[in-house]
Nucleic acid binder design. Structure first.
Length: 471
RNA sequence: GCCCGCAUCGUCUAGCGGUUAGGACAUCACCCUUUCAAGGUGGUAACCGGGGUUCGACUCCCCGUGCGGGUACCA
């Protein structure tokens, strides 16, 4: 199996487009086949410089390596369509010779008026083939330098194919327009370029978003005219935003790379994407990339569009963070805890790990431990705790820490529990005093571990400052 | 307007004629607990509507409805 991801360089990749790439990548890897990355930049107008670099970075970040494509070389180099123009023109000639395509010099204004008229009469809007019947004149016009486009001559009859995800799909060819294949500037349209490249590059399975279903008959017509064996088509459903509309840059769909800065890990993103429209058929839903490769098959993709729920990503992100290898986590945290040493992060990880939804959470979680100054807290002692209990807890803690009990966390914990009980206070509530004293907040990483991290001196400093506030 | 696709809890989904309609997220309750989390247990919550087909429909067919997409010298 050979699959490809063929984005156009019109900006960063969003969740929906990357999911399509993921499906293609997984299908290829699962079958032991190869995955091709191809840049479809046949529209110079929409080209946004830097997009290709973004695409490459995104795929690399998620671990979706391609076997052939930009920065990779391969037997079908180059993998950028704007560099393959002559190839498309050659096949366009073939289509003309075979009577499957014809030149058209109709002006845009005429086409617009024609469609307007058709719409008014409840007719489907298609090219009326005016130029098809006057090819000699058109040839003369072209010779004089008049701009022209090459159109596919859509054959009569019906076009059908067995979509891997949807089953049989049938179109009546009379509803399908004579698609422009070559623009007046000599560039191919998507419709010509994909077909030529997918065939030349031996793509066996075209996995693309379902917005392409209506144009698949056009592509099939080209395959047929050129006597090429068409690939399998798998049209994956769209990913919708919370508004129920298809994700798009226009509507603020987020650049997938942004998720990295927000603290999402690749494993979680890939897992969440896979679950949007695909299911394993078992009740397991947490998978690593490798586990997805083992289980993924195209036929288990659900045909209905899916609404992306960021809460699911959050959950999966926490799960994958908790499962991450410690050293990997220590390294991943570097970005979110700038200025910290490897060693510091190693000591922090046990306290942070189970409390992070995103890696970015490490910042506020670790702040009380990394700041040099003891945090302030207006509401002290915390409500629900008698001042007498607060004093007793702090005194006991100060004595114990001063006596070196931070070396024995379990004993210290036991000592503090007893102190709370002796004062008829709920252990949880009594401890809150300590949290506020040490972390500046009634919640956070485990307070005894936090004190151990800070060291006796700094811990005592904060405890005494809090004690002093109580008088 | 014309064409196409889709339709199970709020969300992602399992289901492929006979099930107490299952799981996950979210949500609620409880347990555990040094706080917060994590974890555990349990609860609330779904087959878009109408016709068929069938002994029997979530499941198959048709029609509606809703949603999505296409309808470009954009992809």
């Amino acid at each position: 199996m050979r699959t490809r991801f063929a984005p156009s360089p019109t900006g960063p990749l969003h969740f929906g487009s990357v999911r399509t790439a993921l499906f293609g990548w997984l299908a290829a890897r699962h079958s032991g086949g190869s995955f091709v990355l191809r840049i479809e930049d046949t529209d110079q107008e929409r080209y946004i410089p830097g997009s290709e670099a973004l695409i490459v970075e995104t795929l690399n970040w998620l671990g979706l390596e391609w076997d052939e494509g930009p920065e990779k070389d391969g037997p079908h180099d180059p993998y950028v369509q704007s560099l393959r123009i002559e190839l498309y023109q050659e096949w366009a000639d073939q289509l003309v010779q075979r009577g499957a395509a014809y030149w058209c010099t109709c002006a845009p204004a005429r086409l617009a008026a024609m469609r307007e008229e058709q719409r008014r009469h409840s007719q489907p809007t298609r090219y009326d083939r005016r130029c098809l019947g006057r090819q000699d004149e058109v040839a003369a016009e072209r010779a004089q330098g008049q701009p022209a486009v090459l159109r596919l001559r859509m054959p009569d009859g019906t076009t059908e194919w067995d979509d891997v995800i949807r089953g049989r799909v049938v179109f009546d060819n009379k509803d399908i327009d004579d698609q422009v294949l070559l623009k007046s500037d000599g560039f191919p349209t998507y419709h010509l370029a994909v077909v030529v490249d997918d065939h030349v590059m031996d793509i066996t399975h075209v996995i693309r978003s379902d917005e392409w279903i209506p144009s698949t008959p056009k592509h099939l017509a080209v395959y047929q005219a050129l006597e090429w064996v068409p690939p399998y088509f798998a049209h994956v459903p769209a990913v919708l935003g919370p508004d129920g509309l298809k994700l798009s840059k226009r509507r603020g769909a987020r650049n997938v790379l942004d998720y990295g800065e927000l603290g999402y890990v690749p494993a979680a993103i890939v897992n969440a994407m896979a679950l949007l429209g695909w299911s394993s058929g078992t009740e397991a839903e947490v998978f690593t990339l490798q586990e997805l490769v083992e289980r993924f098959t195209l036929d288990r993709i659900h045909a209905a569009p899916a609404v992306f729920d960021p809460r699911r990503l959050d959950d999966l992100n926490g799960v994958h963070i908790r499962r991450m290898d410690t050293e990997d986590l220590v390294h991943a945290l570097e970005f979110h805890l700038p200025g910290t040493s490897l060693e510091t992060r190693r000591r922090l990880v046990p306290m942070l790990r189970e409390r992070m939804v995103t890696l970015a959470d490490a910042k506020h979680l670790a702040a009380p431990l990394l700041d040099g100054v003891a945090p302030d807290q207006a509401d002290f002692p915390p409500k629900g705790v008698e001042p007498a209990v607060a004093r007793a807890m702090l005194d006991a803690c100060i004595d114990a820490v001063a006596a070196g009990m931070l070396e024995h966390e379990d004993d210290l914990l036991e000592r503090l529990r007893e102190t709370a009980k002796q004062h008829a206070a709920k252990v949880g509530a009594a401890f809150r005093v300590l949290y506020v004293a040490v972390l500046g907040e009634p919640s956070g990483v485990p307070v005894i571990q936090a004190m151990a991290f800070l060291g006796s001196d700094r811990a005592l400093e904060r405890l005494r400052a809090a004690r002093a506030r109580l008088g």
